[in-house]
């Protein structure tokens, strides 16, 4: 069984994002980029499935600029076997990403696609679901546990107030939630070895997918700064302030 894992290069989670002075987006020039943390979890899960013998090959794919190679190398250092980079200077929307992935699924023929549930830059949470829709496959989103048994995959899903168990026929789509696993470190020897693993680059245009954006960004602004709090002397004063100043009770 082959597993396909799409990974996205995003602004590193340690970085405080800064809105560009003209409000057109978030500053990414010179900013540290790394793999979307949910995608790391997806890679880890796929590698574990292969290590358990449930899968034979893990292929990682990224859609983006040349530097997304670094993200793919990291995924291979974690254990993925090979990588595909779909090269584009655009930043495609989830629908376009899903369409690109669909063509790759048709080409590669995986039985399972494991994605991060969302990317931490745009928080869309849409690609996995759209891909399932386009392919007509079953989907187990927000997965916190994954078991492959007898040609089916059982997924525990994190839902409001608990977990839901679903059982999907393969092929299927899984999106990884935070508690699915704790991704391993890419060790230095493995990073060295990953440099020699195969990485195929495909120009996005060669896939013949309509990647025209459907969305327009009107403006991007930073959240309003939080006002400093005050200390109250007593419960009575608190109630008084909540009633008369904040007018919430």
């Amino acid at each position: 069984m082959k597993i396909l894992v799409p990974v996205k290069r995003v602004v590193d989670y340690n970085i405080k994002p800064r809105v560009k002075a003209d409000g057109s987006g978030v500053e990414t020039a010179g900013v540290k980029m790394s793999m979307n943390p949910f995608d790391e979890i997806a890679v880890e899960e796929a590698v574990r499935l292969r290590e358990k013998g449930a899968a034979s090959e893990v292929v990682v794919v990224s859609i983006g600029v040349q530097q997304a190679q670094d993200t793919l190398r990291t995924a291979m250092a974690m254990g993925a076997d090979r990588a595909i980079l779909v090269l584009t200077d655009e930043s495609p929307e989830p629908l376009a990403v899903a369409k690109v992935l669909k063509t790759l699924v048709e080409k590669e023929g995986p039985s399972l696609v494991v994605l991060g549930k969302q990317a931490i830059d745009d928080d869309m949470n849409a690609t996995g679901q759209m891909l399932a829709g386009l392919l007509g496959w079953g989907q187990g989103t927000f997965a916190s546990k994954v078991d492959v048994v007898d040609g089916r995959v059982n997924v525990s899903r994190e839902i409001d107030g608990g977990t839901e168990q679903v059982s999907l026929a393969l092929p299927a789509i899984i999106t990884a939630d935070l508690r699915l696993n704790e991704p391993r470190y890419a060790s230095l020897p493995n990073i060295m070895k990953a440099k020699k693993k195969p990485l195929e680059t495909i120009p996005a245009a060669d896939l013949g997918v309509d990647m025209t954006p459907r969305l327009t960004v009107v403006s991007v602004a930073e959240p309003a700064e939080r006002k400093a709090g005050i200390k109250v002397g007593s419960a009575t004063e608190l109630v008084e302030k909540l009633r008369n100043e904040a007018k919430v009770i």
Binding site: E182, R184, Y185, S187, L188
Partner: peptide
């Protein structure tokens, strides 16, 4: 070494140095 806990013992993600 990576993945050594606060107590100095290797954690689940332990990776020895190189």
């Amino acid at each position: 070494d990576m993945g050594v806990g606060r107590d100095g013992k290797p954690g689940p993600n332990y990776q020895p140095g190189m």
